[in-house]
Design a protein around this nucleic acid. Structure first.
Lengths: 151, 151
DNA sequence: TTAATACCTAAACCTGACTTTAGGTCAAGG
DNA sequence: CCTTGACCTAAAGTCAGGTTTAGGTATTAA
């Protein structure tokens, strides 16, 4: 059993945030001893799930909904599973968005590397939009949503 | 040259957002014809960069800063390159966070699959924290930040 | 005994990124 | 001529997710 201060230290989350989460109903079963919150393993695991769902794009209200399902026992297994499946798909989608962002960033890094070496952007601009070095052209196309044309 | 309405359609961005970006200084060179905004290729490319930097975690103010650098010409190549390098590192970091989130989500999917099949969580709980099936154990460890212990 | 800590609440406040509102200009079509 | 549609501005409003403030309790340490 941990106090709010200990949990705050362990997870590097402000105390005010933990209280806010509690107020929002994210720890529905948390016990208290003369008014003082006692975080058990259950709440610790809840914190990991909260972080996971938050990162996956869920709002606090929706996370609360999930926490309520867990209180309803085996009746809600299917709903909970569905939620995680949906979140998984969302995160996979987000990763692939970030990969595209990364392609743009890599392209821009190359762009400025080259501009610095050349002292100007002129040479690069002359290569646009399809005479870039092959590796760079791939990044450029990905970042500009240019699909390979039919043969 | 495009009107704000055309750009809004092309990129699926609300007109109000485009005006907001303009007001925040994200299109410092945009021309107008009798008060009406004219989006050129320059602003179109700016929009792609805005999206990229936004996704990478930059705030609007910081993106404005970048747009101002581009106006200063070759003098700011190095700063701009540095910015993209930093953003690249940030996005790589975020992707790896999402990978860990994905491990948690996969673990939870397995968890509820199994719980549904068993009709209860008991069997699973009995396997915690280190008697899970090997593949699942990996996900669990990753999601719970458990490093492999020294041999 | 008093002063520092660690905890508590309710309610106000903050921030970023938009969105909405209210009121106005201007060109084309019926 | 007058209405419709696409544009414009300034300013107020919204929303999520916290954070801060103000005031209070309980335990411990000098």
């Amino acid at each position: 059993m941990y106090t709010i201060g200990q949990v705050s230290e362990m997870f590097n989350i402000p105390i005010s945030t933990l209280r806010y989460y509690d107020k929002e109903g994210l720890f529905p079963d948390m016990e208290r001893q003369s008014g003082i919150r006692k975080f058990s393993e259950q709440e610790i695991e809840a914190l990991r799930v909260i972080d996971c769902l938050k990162v996956s794009g869920l709002e606090i209200k929706e996370i609360k909904q999930f926490m309520e399902w867990t209180k309803e026992g085996s009746r809600t297994f299917a709903q909970r599973k569905q939620l995680f499946e949906t979140r998984k798909a969302a995160v996979e989608e987000e990763i692939s968005q970030l990969q595209k962002t990364l392609d743009m960033l890599k392209y821009k890094c190359w762009y400025y590397d080259t501009a610095i070496a050349d002292g100007s952007e002129e040479n690069i601009i002359a290569m646009l939009p399809d005479k870039l070095p092959p590796e760079i052209q791939k990044l450029y196309n990905s970042a500009h949503e240019i699909e390979k044309e039919a043969a």
